[in-house]
């Protein structure tokens, strides 16, 4: 089997790091739960690509993809329950609702 072009590997590695960074920024900074879930998918996509570029064993790449599906499935369920419980998926309004749920003086 031909070994992959080193330049191509470097390009894939750079793209994967960019994807992971983008995903983490969305995870940390996005104000919408749905967008955070998109950040989860982007982060996993980037890390699976990085594994491929680093020529990790195939089972590792496959495992990363499988686990990402687990996260997406659970995250989607959570999104639905958040919509049902708060009527919204915007994090700031969810935080405000949580603050009002807690009795005064009980929050740290």
């Amino acid at each position: 089997m031909n070994s992959p072009d080193p330049m191509l590997l470097k390009a894939v590695a750079a793209a994967s790091v960019a994807l992971v960074a983008l995903g983490i920024v969305v995870l940390l900074a996005s104000a919408n739960a749905g967008k955070r879930l998109a950040g989860v998918a982007t982060t996993f996509l980037g890390s699976a690509l990085a594994l491929a570029a680093l020529r990790a064993p195939q089972i590792f790449v496959t495992g990363a993809v499988v686990v990402s599906f687990g996260y997406m499935a659970l995250g989607t369920l959570l999104l639905i329950r958040l919509q049902e419980a708060y009527g919204d998926t915007e994090i700031p309004s969810i935080d405000v609702a949580d603050d009002s749920d807690e009795s005064p003086g009980s929050a740290p």
Binding site: V17, V20, G23, I24, L27, L28, A33, R36, L37, G39, V40, T43, F44, G46, S47, A48, A50, L51, F60, A64, V67, S68, Y71, L74, G75, L78, R81, L82, A85, Y86, I91, I94, D95, D98
Partner: peptide, 20 residues
């Protein structure tokens, strides 16, 4: 649910770093 959402975000961050 808010706590669980934060756990999902943290988990994805953590998993990506572990894989890298």
């Amino acid at each position: 649910l808010n706590g669980a959402l934060r756990m999902i975000s943290t988990g994805a961050f953590s998993a990506a770093l572990f894989l890298l």
